[in-house]
Amino acid sequence: MASQDKEQAGKDQISDEREERNPFTETGKEDVTAGHGETEPFAETHEHKGVDTKKPEDIAEGLAAKRKRIEMDTEARRKAKKKKSKRALRKKQLKKQKRDYKHSLKLLNVLDKCITDEQKNEEEEEREEEELIKIFQEQQKRWYRYRSLRRERLRAMKLLREQFVKVIKKFEDYYRGVFYDEDNEFDN
Rank of each mutant, 00 (worst) to 15 (best):
1 M>W: 07
2 A>L: 13
3 S>M: 11
4 Q>N: 12
6 K>T: 13
9 A>S: 15
10 G>E: 10
11 K>N: 12
11 K>S: 10
13 Q>A: 14
15 S>P: 00
18 R>M: 12
18 R>P: 00
20 E>N: 03
20 E>S: 04
20 E>V: 03
21 R>M: 08
22 N>A: 02
23 P>D: 02
24 F>I: 07
25 T>D: 08
25 T>C: 09
27 T>W: 12
28 G>W: 02
30 E>Q: 04
31 D>K: 08
32 V>Y: 01
32 V>I: 07
33 T>R: 11
35 G>T: 01
35 G>R: 01
36 H>I: 11
36 H>N: 11
36 H>M: 14
37 G>D: 00
39 T>N: 04
40 E>C: 03
44 E>G: 11
45 T>C: 15
46 H>N: 07
46 H>W: 02
48 H>L: 15
49 K>N: 10
51 V>Y: 04
51 V>W: 05
51 V>M: 05
53 T>W: 04
56 P>E: 07
56 P>L: 05
59 I>Q: 08
59 I>V: 14
63 L>R: 10
64 A>E: 12
66 K>N: 08
67 R>V: 02
68 K>I: 07
68 K>G: 07
70 I>R: 11
71 E>L: 05
72 M>I: 06
74 T>E: 15
75 E>H: 07
75 E>A: 12
76 A>F: 04
77 R>Q: 10
78 R>N: 06
80 A>H: 08
80 A>S: 09
82 K>H: 08
88 A>E: 12
89 L>H: 03
94 L>F: 02
94 L>V: 03
94 L>N: 03
95 K>Q: 12
95 K>A: 13
97 Q>K: 11
102 K>M: 06
104 S>E: 14
104 S>V: 07
106 K>Q: 07
108 L>M: 11
110 V>G: 03
110 V>T: 13
112 D>P: 00
113 K>G: 07
113 K>C: 05
115 I>R: 09
116 T>Q: 15
116 T>L: 13
118 E>Q: 12
118 E>R: 11
120 K>T: 04
122 E>L: 15
128 E>R: 13
130 E>S: 11
132 L>R: 13
133 I>D: 13
133 I>S: 14
136 F>D: 12
137 Q>G: 06
140 Q>C: 02
141 K>V: 09
141 K>S: 09
142 R>T: 08
145 R>W: 01
146 Y>I: 03
147 R>F: 00
148 S>H: 04
148 S>P: 00
149 L>I: 00
152 E>R: 02
152 E>S: 03
153 R>E: 11
154 L>F: 02
157 M>N: 14
157 M>E: 15
158 K>G: 05
159 L>I: 05
159 L>P: 02
160 L>F: 04
162 E>H: 06
166 K>M: 04
166 K>S: 04
168 I>A: 09
169 K>C: 05
170 K>A: 09
172 E>R: 02
172 E>M: 03
177 G>A: 08
178 V>G: 00
180 Y>R: 13
180 Y>W: 10
181 D>Y: 04
185 E>K: 13
